[in-house]
Computed example of a mutant assay.
Amino acid sequence: MLCRAGCGACCIAPSISSPIPGMPTGKAAGERCLHLSAENLCLLFGDPRRPAVCGAFDADPEVCGDSREEAIRLLGWLEQATSVA
């Protein structure tokens, strides 16, 4: 599966624990990454400062579903299911 242009769900729904430029402690689940454009495109794509976790993410129907809304819901559920309380 190819990423849906303008989706950005993977830059919003999951938490990122590694530093991101301008976000030294990463980001919380549900928080929009500072590097997500108004068009929901990653402004760090191809930049060596992009976190490894972001570069390793592969779009897949299991986590991206059939729409941006479904991707946010599925990624949010996965975040909750795998977070340590």
Results as ranks from 00 to 15, higher is better:
L75H: 04
E69H: 05
L41M: 08
C42Q: 09
C10N: 06
P48V: 10
R4K: 15
I12V: 15
P21F: 01
L41A: 12
L74K: 15
E70I: 00
G55I: 00
A59Y: 11
I72M: 12
T25L: 12
C10H: 04
I20L: 06
R68A: 01
T25I: 04
R49I: 06
A13I: 07
L74E: 05
S17C: 05
E31M: 11
D60A: 13
D47S: 09
G22Y: 06
S37G: 09
S17H: 12
M23D: 13
L43R: 15
L2C: 03
L75P: 00
R49S: 14
A81R: 15
E62K: 11
L41F: 01
C7W: 02
L75Q: 11
F45A: 13
G8M: 08
D66I: 10
L74G: 06
C7S: 09
A9P: 06
R68T: 09
T25K: 13
L74Y: 04
V53W: 00
P14Y: 03
D60N: 14
W77N: 14
C3H: 13
D60T: 07
E31K: 11
M1K: 08
C33D: 01
E39F: 03
E62Q: 08
A56G: 10
R68E: 09
A28Q: 15
R4Y: 04
C42L: 09
E79H: 12
A28K: 14
M23K: 09
T82G: 06
C42T: 11
C3Q: 13
G76V: 02
P48H: 02
A71P: 04
E39C: 07
C11L: 03
L44C: 07
C3L: 11
W77L: 15
L74F: 00
S17E: 13
F45I: 12
A5V: 11
L36G: 07
A85L: 12
E69W: 04
L78I: 11
G65T: 04
R50K: 13
P19K: 09
D47E: 12
P61R: 11
G55M: 00
E79C: 02
I16L: 11
P61V: 08
A52L: 14
C33M: 02
E31G: 02
A9H: 06
P14H: 03
P14E: 03
A56H: 09
R68L: 00
H35K: 04
E70Q: 15
P51L: 00
V84G: 05
A29H: 09
A56L: 12
G26K: 05
L43P: 01
L75Y: 07
C11Y: 01
L36N: 09
P21H: 05
D47I: 05
H35V: 02
C10P: 03
R32D: 01
A29L: 01
I12T: 13
